[in-house]
Write a protein that binds this DNA or RNA. Structure first.
Lengths: 336, 336
DNA sequence: TCGCAGTCAGCAAACGTTTGCACCACTAAC
DNA sequence: GTTAGTGGTGCAAACGTTTGCTGACTGCGA
């Protein structure tokens, strides 16, 4: 690998001048500039970001921790983050944590050693306090938390208004005439799950419907969780609508219904959450509480970029308002 | 940020000793080691990977270029790569290229400047030759190409046997009694598309069925492409089975069929490619030519890791054999 | 003739590590 | 009482940049 000194020798100037030509950091005569540029081209020289980072203590790298990139929600979110970073020449370390505290902590350690300029935390398993402590201690890396809440960590936050989302969904179903509405949520120790359940409860009560506790289920955010919960729920009959924790779960619900010979939306209405693209291609098309996930990723990255120049500004919280995406999986309940 | 010298001062040893304690690179007395470890813990010191990389010229970073992480195939592949890297403390730069030559080239430039230890190329749009040239010229970064072929680039290769896959799929359909089988492929300038089409052609001819050219369509790998192609194909009637380019396209096909009131598998059989998890949750469950995508990612990373220690070994090509995953989207053709 | 501003460029000190080389103190062997 | 080995340690030179400081030269006004 050729270095800046090799280029300088070839161009017949000092390596200081080469550096300034490359970065445009001071006036250089046309002649010298031309010679440098030619030398660079001829040698295929590319400057070492490693050395630059050491000198300037800026790496132009963000670390992004997600539970699992295989989940369409996080894929879309990550894509949004990356697209924004791309515009400003930041690179992204992708870290899948699987909601495994150990893996997450080790990743965090690695990212700190690598001196990333910023951190996106869309995962936060295990002792969140431990994470917060390590962050605060070692680096004060600017951090944005997405869709989680980490007590004791004073970081910017981007999250969906799950309460409003659940109310929207429940409202939509109530409007169609449903009264027996189940709510599937994520793990109960995530407060987004609690928030959603609360929204569902509130919406039903405000409509004068008393929610049954056995219609309130929790699991993880996978299709199989949705499938299993729907199987047990539908076996008992009664419910005419299901509000799923996310679209992937909802797809599991559709599958369970199909297997049981329950037609959607005629006999059962299903509504998802997130509004991933794929929801438009399953059958029936999945009505969902849609969120601008890609844009959310962009916002997250922007927040982080802002923090770099203004480290002391007050903490910010961006709340994304969801809206109903109507497709075909919701209709009026069957007449009894 | 504290440095190795701060630690040394606190522990009352030279920073050489601290380095050796941290890396286990030479014998250090119990006493000195203990003092160093205590100092490290007290100060929350974490070594700078940047400085280390500069000195050792090893970054422990791989760059992974994919068209779009939002595509479940690449999400799964990336996940497989990352899981393998995780075991060996490598980090992954995620680069979405959108099959856009310009974006890809700029990413490649960035990755070279960042001195990544290896490269996974699952995207290769634009002038592949240009890419190859740049790689060969500037760094000779060990590279593994996945599912693409880049003429003139002498890199290791991991790919699915699309010919065999298409034959498997066509064979499966022929066995059920189908004769009017369409084949949807990816862009025709990708040779995996051509290979698949060739496999389909061969299987049909070997069975004594003359394939019709109008049953051979190409588009990109998206659900909407599958949807559009299926719409135009099904409008004309005739075909009793569709072999889709991948599962995402197949989901688009299912959607088109449902909208047209064509029931799958009674009136139309559909078979996908890749075998993504989600295929098990759409309705009807998608029969597919399954590939161990996650494992493929792992293999890719392993190949790259191997290349690091053996840069001169001969070029390797790993070919993944697919197999049929039977679910519910394939049945015998309707009787006429 | 001198001083001064303006333009262009080079020197060398960092940045935080790894690692070859050298040194010291001690013990065992001759 | 030298010599040779051995266990423990430190010095200082890289690695490839950025950037503050300094200097050479030119042209201009006094």
């Amino acid at each position: 690998m050729s270095t800046i000194k090799d280029v300088a020798a070839r161009a017949g100037v000092s390596f200081t001048t080469v550096s300034h030509v490359l970065n445009g950091t001071r006036r250089v005569s046309e002649e010298a500039r031309a010679r440098v540029e030619q030398a660079v081209a001829e040698m295929g020289y590319s400057p070492s970001a490693v050395a630059r980072a050491l000198k300037t203590s800026e790496t132009f790298i963000f670390g992004v921790l997600v539970p699992d990139i295989t989940n369409p929600f996080f894929a879309e979110l990550t894509r949004g983050i990356e697209d924004r970073c791309w515009q400003t020449d930041y690179s992204v370390f992708l870290c899948n944590c699987d909601d495994d505290g150990g893996r997450q902590d080790r990743y965090l350690q690695t990212l700190i050693e690598r001196r990333v300029d910023g951190l996106v935390l869309a995962a936060a398993a295990g002792e969140a306090a431990e994470v917060a402590k390590r962050l605060a201690r070692s680096n004060n890396v600017p951090t944005v938390v997405v869709e989680r809440r980490i007590p004791g960590l004073d970081a910017d936050l981007v999250r969906i208004d799950h309460d409003a989302g659940a109310r929207l969904a429940a409202g939509h179903l109530l409007e169609k005439g449903h009264r027996a509405i189940a709510c599937l949520s994520g793990p109960s120790d995530f407060d987004i799950s609690r928030e959603r359940t609360a929204g569902w409860l509130a919406a039903l009560r405000e409509a004068g419907v008393e929610p049954r506790p056995e219609w309130m289920l929790t699991g993880d955010f996978s299709a199989s969780a949705g499938y299993e919960m729907a199987r047990s729920l539908l076996a008992r009959g009664e419910v005419t609508a299901i509000l799923a924790g996310n679209d992937v779960m909802a797809i599991g619900v559709l599958r369970a219904a199909a297997e049981l010979g329950i037609s959607v939306p005629e006999q059962l209405s299903v509504i998802g959450f997130d509004g991933i693209d794929l929801g438009g291609y399953v059958h029936p098309g999945l009505t969902s509480v849609g969120c601008p996930i890609h844009e959310m990723g962009g916002t997250t990255a922007s927040l982080l970029l802002e923090r770099l120049t203004n480290r002391e500004g007050s903490r910010r919280e961006v709340i994304i308002k969801p809206r109903i995406i109507e497709r075909q999986s919701v209709a009026a309940p069957p007449r009894t």
